[in-house]
Nucleic acid binder design. Structure first.
Lengths: 116, 116
DNA sequence: CACGCATATTCTCGTGCAGGTATATACCGG
DNA sequence: CCGGTATATACCTGCACGAGAATATGCGTG
């Protein structure tokens, strides 16, 4: 299983993660709430655990799983370079105003070339 | 191709997206910079386009591709419920200080540890 | 209009992986 | 120890999808 991204490509795994986001749960609880066969749950949990998305604590016969932050941080970090494409959208007004400001200060725009 | 997440599970597609994050590019430019066979580039671009990650503008015979924000926003939104698990990490300083407070109150610490 | 470049599509093939079933291990109470 | 419950692993099978090669489409230029 290659990357962090391949892990969360699987819908059932995302379902498990979303469940664990609200609170930690045992395998049986996940099995019941997601109506998913137990071996399937265990297998997905294994994948998630080996990728660092979750960790397990042993409570008698139960194994209680909970979220670990690192892989999510990695995804968040990957997202960073793309944020500029929609942060403009979100506070488009603010940025627009900033632009207006800039234009005031540089009134005559000479043929400036963009370098990429 | 099911979800947004399945799309970015593919390393080559992420490479293409990262390239486009800095600036828009033609198919040939991508092909050259990533040293990837042209049909492969086109096929991945098709997948990315149909999933809304990119859009293309026609410039003579070239097709110039650029990022579209929506799918990234979707991923960002998915990440939200998990943020609380590492926002704690971010203010690790605060936690660390809290710990230091605790240690003052529990004076006898045997093991000398190098600072981790 | 034909040539050539840029990009897209089609096909086949191999394989990684998820689903399902069966079975193994672990742990608890009596 | 034993039965029962909780979880993990093993094995098989099917299929989706990426790689690669060949070919098709589109478009500007002489």
């Amino acid at each position: 299983m290659e990357s962090t991204f391949a892990i969360i490509a699987e819908p059932n795994r995302r379902a498990i993660l979303s469940l664990l986001a609200s609170s930690e749960r045992s395998v049986g609880e996940i099995e019941h709430q997601l109506q998913m066969p137990q071996p399937s749950v265990s297998k997905h949990l294994r994948v998630l655990r080996e990728a660092g998305f979750v960790e397990s604590r042993t409570d008698a016969q139960r194994r209680v799983y909970r979220i670990r932050p690192e892989p999510f941080m990695e995804i968040d970090a990957w997202l960073v370079p793309f944020r500029r494409f929609w942060s403009r959208h979100v506070d488009a007004l603010e940025r627009h105003l900033d632009r207006m400001e800039q234009m005031k200060k540089v009134p005559s725009v000479k043929g400036k070339k963009r370098h990429d």
